[in-house]
Design a protein around this nucleic acid. Structure first.
Ligand SMILES: [Mn+2]
Ligand SMILES: [Mn+2]
Ligand SMILES: [Zn+2]
Ligand SMILES: [Zn+2]
Lengths: 135, 135
DNA sequence: TTCCTAGTTTATAATAATTCTAAAGTGAAA
DNA sequence: TTTCACTTTAGAATTATTATAAACTAGGAA
């Protein structure tokens, strides 16, 4: 992904391209495979990859802005921390409880044959399939 | 559900039948329909229904013991609080984001036709289908 | 360029959910 | 009844997250 596209992610999220934000955006979006991360794990990874310092609040703010702009998804996993996902397409997850790791499942690899109808007055917004793994 | 069965829930969870625990167990298990709750909501409901006082730590401890014994399931929902579920059978959920309410879906009402195979060396423990609702 | 200022970063405080602790209370076996 | 391991409880500690407010900076205007 080119730098101009990275900067577009920031612009479309209403964020000025500061040093910290460009580093975060490059780290998240300039890669082949999508990545699942927590704010804490992202902070550690940024520490390794760059020489920039990041306040946790900056990471929280930036990540939330990306989420609001649709560039990140938030995923709830059994546990205390929130996971984010650079894969914003409709897809599902394996969850490996041993490693606390999320693994993408292509939406096409899960076919649902029968679904209940939504309760009165409600509609289905989206369906999340979560496959817990064991050894 | 008879009192003897309530007491069995406690016994099988390794809990002595104290005043607080019996009240909690009666409230959770002596009902027609299953219930989804958080520790905080349970505390409020107990305050209304009984004249007993409960320290939050007592509710946490008791609920966790029931969970460990398989009498309750823990459900992760997008949000900060953990939900518990007296329905410990294999089933799925609607989640109404507006009311923060979980609604049971019978396992038979969701039929999955195609599933990905588990990653190398891993097996599928269970599948959770989560249907988010909108108005 | 230099100035100016709205936007940004950051350290730290505040909040919220949960867990821990240790002192006081209690069920039930002997 | 006595005894003691188990419980309850208030409050402290912990963890993830959000809020605050002072110091900093990007970038347009002068
Ligand atoms: Mn939680
Ligand atoms: Mn959370
Ligand atoms: Zn994903
Ligand atoms: Zn349920």
């Amino acid at each position: 992904m080119k730098l101009i596209e990275i900067l577009n992610k920031l612009r479309s999220s209403g964020l000025r391209p500061t040093k910290q934000r460009v580093e975060i955006a490059k780290f998240l979006f300039d890669r082949e495979k999508t990545i699942h991360f927590t704010v804490e794990s992202l902070n550690k990874l940024l520490l390794k990859k760059t020489s920039t310092k990041f306040a946790l609040a900056t990471i929280y703010n930036t990540v939330h802005a990306f989420k609001a702009a649709g560039h990140l998804n938030e995923i709830e996993v059994r546990g205390k921390k929130t996971y984010f996902d650079t894969n914003v397409s409709n897809h599902h997850h394996f969850y490996d409880n041993d490693t606390s790791e999320l693994i993408d499942i292509n939406a096409k690899d899960v076919v649902i044959q029968k679904l209940p109808k939504a309760p009165n007055g409600k509609k289905i917004k989206n369906i999340e399939v979560f496959i817990n793994l064991k050894n």
